[in-house]
Structure formats: C-alpha cells, structure tokens
C-alpha cells in the first residue's frame, strides 16, 4: 500500500522539478525579448519613471511609426533583406551541388576539399577583414551590397554544404540510378528526382543561412561606409552611437529586426535537431 503511494509522490516531485526547471529556462530565454517589446511600446514621458515596471500604464505605437516613416530603417531593412535573401539563395544552390557531389561521388582531391572546408570553420574570420577589404576595394565592391553578398556566400557555403550532404546521404542512390537508366543525365536526375526530395533540407539550409547573414555585423561595418548600403545591424549601431539614447525608437527598430529572423527560425526549427547535428557533429 505504501510503495505505490511513495512512488507516485516521487513521480510528482520529479515532474514538479522538471516543469519548474523548464519554466526557468523559458523565462530566461524569453524575458530579454519581452523587455525589448515592452520598452518599444512605452511612451517616452513615462519611460524613466516606470523603468522597472513589468508593463507600462500606457502604451503607444509612436516609436514604430517614427521608425517606419521618419528614419532610414526601412531602407536598412530592405538592404538586409536583399543581402540575406541573395546570400541564402546563392549559398543554397552552391551548397546543394557541392553537397550532392560529396554524397555521391568519389574523386581525387575530395579529401583536400573537405579538409579545406572544415578548416575554414575553425579560423578566426576577423583576420580576413583587412585582406578582404584590400581585395574588394579596387574592384569597387566595398560599400556595395554585391560585395557583402559574395563574402557572406563564401562564409556560409562550407557549413551549408555539410548540412546538404547529410540530407542527400539519407536518400537512396537507386532513385537517380533508375532515372539515369531511363536516359536522363545525372544532373537531370539530380534536379528532377533528388532535389524535390530534399526540399525540407533546402528550406532548413535557406533559413539557417538567411539568419546568419541577417545577423552579420563586423564585415558589414568594415566593408560598408555609406548610409545607402548599410544593413540593419550597421544602421542600428550607428543610430545608437550617433543619436545618443532614444531607447523607445531603438527598441522598436530592434523588434522589427527580430521579426524576419524569428519567423524563419520558427519555420525551420524542427529540422534543426536533425540537420545541425548531422552537419556539425559528423564533420
């Protein structure tokens, strides 16, 4: 009689602790984002007096209307969308064909190429800032979105390739071999049969690269100096240092910067556990 009761008590205690810890993790993860949102809707006149209140007594959308209509942020936002979008697109195309080759072919020099890609994951990218600037300047690619797209694509190709390879590895070879016997070239078989099957993997890679490019700051700071080619991170940072502290507006801009990244993330997060480990750990 006492044993089942005791074990039930233990079970309750276990799950109580379990949920408590989960709640702590959720709070830690979400609180900073909640605070960002809270300050962004707080009217300026009560920002300081109600600095530590959990929710302001009045709210306003003024900060958002200002950021959207009176500032350069829509322009920065578009620049970031262009850079991240094209980076994601080009990276995915290159990573898909390279990942496919890694998955299906054995060829001379493969080990060298794989090693090259792995090494690029290890060395400090900051040390490339100066030489890349010197290479791109004479080509007219500093201070341009094209330059950023090229650099970001190169940075993201290695990881995206390993990610795509892991998705191709999961698809049986018989599929394209059958298509090739039917008279298709390998590339046709790859395009018509294999690529459609890896669409979820491609979506995950797209999302991953998009968010990586969306977040990149140091190269954007170094390579871009004009307002017209600034991406969102650069714009926000220069806004902070130039205009001192209008916290409400900055946080409203921050919330806007958050939206695309989080939207992408929520779309792809269920592939992450599978994809990220396949890419990161197998390498």
């Amino acid at each position: 009689m006492s044993t089942p009761g005791k074990s039930r008590l233990r079970k309750t205690a276990y799950w109580g602790t379990h949920y408590l810890m989960i709640a702590a993790f959720v709070a830690f993860a979400l609180f900073p984002l909640y605070w960002l949102l809270k300050v962004s809707v707080t009217p300026n006149d009560i920002l300081y007096t109600e600095g530590v209140r959990m929710w302001p007594s009045r709210t306003t959308w003024d900060n958002y209307t200002f950021v959207l209509t009176q500032s350069h942020f829509p322009h920065y936002f578009m620049n970031s969308v262009i850079v991240s979008g094209f980076t994601a697109l080009f990276t995915c195309i290159i990573a898909a064909v390279t990942g496919y080759a890694f998955s299906r072919f054995r060829f001379n020099g493969k080990i060298v190429i794989v090693a090259l890609m792995l090494i690029t994951q290890m060395f400090p990218l900051v040390m490339l800032i100066a030489p890349i600037f010197r290479i791109l300047a004479p080509l007219g690619l500093t201070d341009s979105l094209t330059g950023l797209i090229i650099v970001y694509t190169a940075f993201n190709v290695p990881f995206a390739t390993f990610l795509m390879q892991s998705f191709f590895d999961g698809i049986p070879k018989d599929l394209e071999e059958a298509a090739m016997i039917d008279g298709n070239t390998r590339f046709e078989a790859f395009r018509r049969i294999i690529l459609p099957l890896t669409l979820p993997g491609i979506a995950a890679t797209l999302g991953f690269v998009f968010t990586a490019a969306w977040s990149e700051l140091l190269f954007a700071l170094m390579l871009v100096s004009s307002e017209s080619a600034s991406t969102f991170p650069v714009g926000l940072l220069s806004f902070v240092s130039k205009f001192g502290v209008d916290f409400g507006q900055m946080m409203a801009a921050g919330v806007l910067a958050l939206i695309p990244a989080c939207a992408f993330f929520l779309l792809i997060q269920r592939y992450l556990v599978q994809g990220l480990t396949a890419g990161a750990v197998k390498g």
């Binding site: 993790f25 959720v26 993860a29 990244a261």
Partner: peptide, 8 residues
C-alpha cells in the same frame, strides 16, 4: 527555448 539562438 531555442529562440535566443535565432536572435541576431
């Protein structure tokens, strides 16, 4: 809980 990873 994975969301912070997506925040730029």
């Amino acid at each position: 809980v994975f969301l912070p990873w997506a925040v730029p």
